[in-house]
């Protein structure tokens, strides 16, 4: 046998283990010196070994693992394996816990964000209400200031009326009738000169309204020279009440004239006369 190479059938019989011990030993001896037959037998062994893949599969007992490693003296890797597996398990558990914690944190955070958002909305509403109230307060304040100004004007007018009344009652006051220069005009007026208070009141009604850029200006003549006592305008009903301090040094006066001048008043009398009053009969 050692001199003859194997047939495929003989290689199969050897691989499947069906030869008697004597024939098996002869082939084994031949294979030690024949690489070609060894390759042939190896291929047959692959076919025979395939039978093992078709056997029912059983899981090896755990005790077999321990005793095999113990017998091989490989107990340490088992410990290492345990440690590694335990570490991996611990890492997995830790990762899961972290994930759960993160999820819970996200849920809680989301709830807090929702609450904060709600609070923010409420605050926005309150801020808007506060702004509305502030606007109302500003409007009220503005109206109050306006009323205060009106009140001040009324008080000022009241004070003026009181002073005028006092001037009319004062023995040191003179009242002059004012005449309209234009006969077509039906304006009426009086001029009160109070020497005690050194003030002059001019009251007139039915004054014609002036255009923009014009104003009434009242003058007092003294020694042929006209001294301005100031400017005034009539209201929409044509009424005007004007008071002014008597210029210092003006001790004698002959007449008073109201003219129409440009807005702001003129240093010299230039406009046409509207009213005139004779002051020569005033007591000095």
């Amino acid at each position: 046998m050692t001199g003859r190479c194997l047939s495929q059938e003989e290689a199969d019989e050897f691989a499947i283990g069906s030869l008697d011990p004597l024939a098996e030993a002869e082939i084994a001896a031949h294979l030690r010196s024949c690489q070609a037959c060894l390759g042939l037998v190896n291929l047959s062994l692959q076919v025979a070994a395939a039978l093992s893949f078709a056997v029912p599969s059983h899981r090896a007992p755990a005790s077999l693992r321990r005793r095999t490693f113990l017998a091989a003296g490989v107990a340490r890797p088992r410990m290492i394996t345990r440690v590694l597996r335990a570490a991996r398990s611990a890492a997995a558990v830790a990762a899961a816990l972290i994930a759960v914690a993160a999820l819970a944190g996200m849920i809680i955070l989301r709830g807090q964000v929702h609450d904060l958002s709600q609070e923010n909305t409420d605050l926005s509403v309150q801020v808007n209400e506060a702004l509305s109230q502030k606007i109302e307060i500003l409007a009220l304040t503005s109206r109050l200031n306006e009323e205060e100004r009106r009140s001040a004007d009324l008080m000022q007018a009241a004070r003026g009326d009181r002073d005028l009344l006092l001037a009319l009652l004062s023995p040191e006051s003179d009242v002059a009738e004012v005449f309209a220069v234009e006969e077509s005009a039906y304006s009426l007026g009086r001029l009160v000169w109070d020497r005690g208070q050194k003030k002059v009141w001019f009251v007139a009604s039915r004054l014609r309204p002036l255009s923009d850029g014009e104003t009434y200006q009242i003058w007092a003549s003294s020694g042929g020279k006209y001294h301005s006592l100031g400017t005034f305008n009539a209201d929409s009903s044509g009424f005007a009440r004007y008071e002014a301090m008597v210029p210092q040094g003006l001790e004698s006066y002959e007449s008073a004239v109201v003219t129409i001048e440009r807005a702001g008043g003129s240093p010299e009398r230039t406009g046409a006369s509207v009213f005139v009053a004779d002051l020569s009969r005033f007591r000095r």
Binding site: V55, S57, H58, R59, P61, T68, F69, A72, P77
Partner: peptide, 17 residues
């Protein structure tokens, strides 16, 4: 030794079966 552990775990079932 770790290679032996891996090889055992890979084929212990086949060998035992």
């Amino acid at each position: 030794e770790l290679a032996f552990v891996v090889l055992y775990d890979r084929y212990a079932g086949l060998v035992y079966s």
